[in-house]
């Protein structure tokens, strides 16, 4: 059996300290939240020794705050907990759907938004939805705290901006303005238990006349990192998010993508489908606003 050390610090400072010590002494340490990626890797392709730093005992990784001007979701909150949070479901339905698409019911009990972000897969379902919702990553580290927009967090396949001694505390989202709703769609050939071939998250804000005043679009699995697509958002703003605007937004997503061909899909297929998903997700977000009466 490979040698693993395990620690479950009770304070942010302790967690940072452990991570920093390891970094300074050249020892490997990895942060554990739900473990649905990490433990699979440890049992499979990467069995080398390391210290596991379990962040689930920290208050700030386990807190949901949905009442203030900002919404805060701790990095260790499981998807199943999010799914039972009625206020979040009302405010960020698309984000919660993106979290709920991942894995099975059993996995939902452990998997977290924070883990999905820090695993930094190009195909991570929640990241485009977090981008659409103007999410910011709250990071703790030796230099104190800093925030990074979600769209700037991933730097490549499996890599991100976290530096030595740093870890993700949680995600902060501005409270959606009145008339705002989001949606996330991904494409998989099956109904569940699969990884996105492409994904798109869209948030729109409509005024009293149904005209879009603000929009955000995030896409996944079509580039080395999930992307924000300002051009797609721009083609929605000022419109009623009608078919023409949605088609234009979809085309902007296709234009922004640089996918690869692999066992899950071809370049041409992904380019097409990411546009379709943006269009359909935009329509769902729009209809959600309209169904609420603006």
């Amino acid at each position: 059996m490979a040698e693993y050390a395990y620690s479950a610090p009770l304070s942010i400072d302790d967690a940072v300290g452990i991570l920093e010590d390891h970094a300074n002494s050249g020892r490997r340490a990895q942060v554990l939240a739900g473990g649905t990626d990490l433990i699979v890797q440890m049992r499979g392709t990467d069995r080398e020794p390391r210290t596991i730093v379990d962040i689930k005992r920290l208050e700030e990784t386990n807190r949901i705050d949905a009442d203030g001007d900002d919404i805060y979701i701790g990095a260790a909150i499981a998807s199943a907990v999010l799914d039972e949070h009625e206020e979040l479901k009302r405010l960020l339905p698309g984000l919660l759907e993106s979290a709920y698409l991942i894995g099975s019911t059993q996995i939902q009990g452990r998997a977290t938004l924070g883990g999905n972000l820090c695993n930094s897969s190009p195909a991570a379902d929640t990241i485009p939805a977090m981008i659409a919702n103007r999410g910011a990553c709250v990071i703790a580290g030796p230099g104190g705290r800093r925030e990074v927009p979600v769209e700037d967090f991933c730097t490549g396949v499996g890599t991100n901006v976290l530096e030595a001694g740093e870890f993700l505390l949680g995600l902060r989202f501005p409270r959606p303005a009145p008339g705002t709703a989001d949606a996330y769609l991904r494409f998989i050939p099956r109904t569940e238990m699969d990884i996105a071939v492409a994904g798109a998250g869209v948030s729109v804000t409509l005024d009293g006349n149904g005209v879009c005043t603000a929009a955000r679009v995030g896409i996944g699995a079509v580039a080395p990192t999930p992307l924000i697509v300002p051009e797609a958002a721009e083609s929605l703003v000022g419109t009623r998010v009608d078919d023409d605007a949605l088609v234009a937004a979809g085309e902007a997503c296709t234009a922004a993508s640089s996918p690869i061909s692999d066992k899950r899909g071809t370049v041409s297929y992904r380019l097409k489908v990411v546009g379709v998903l943006c269009r359909r997700a935009g329509a769902i977000a729009r209809d959600r606003v309209l169904a609420r009466g603006g």
């Binding site: 050939p189 099956r190 109904t191 569940e192 238990m193 699969d194 990884i195 066992k263 899950r264």
Partner: peptide, 11 residues
């Protein structure tokens, strides 16, 4: 089984 795509029950 992730990428050898057999149907799951809900399919």
């Amino acid at each position: 089984f992730l990428d050898y795509r057999m149907p799951v029950a809900s399919d």
